[in-house]
Amino acid sequence: MDPEKFDADTMIDAMASFLDLTIEADYREGVKAHLEAARVIAVDVLAYPTDDDAEPAPVYRA
């Protein structure tokens, strides 16, 4: 994913409207920082190879 192509403000506005959430001006920067951090972290996760038939572990059994 290209970090240059991500506009956090546009996403926050769209998703806040979609989810009926209020993002006040004084904490918009905080939300933005966390979204940007998540997008960086997601790069490794999305690059990890999994087959189409890989089972997820929503209820995990150790």
Binding site: M11, I12, M15, L19, L21, I23, Y27, G30, V31, K32, A33, H34, L35, A38, A42, V45, L46, Y48, T50, A54, E55, P56, A57, P58, Y60
Partner: peptide, 22 residues
Amino acid sequence: DRLLAGAMIPGAWVAKAQKLRR
């Protein structure tokens, strides 16, 4: 702030994360 950002994370990322986990 972290939870609000979490609310906007795509479902596809979470499904992938759970596959990775197993």
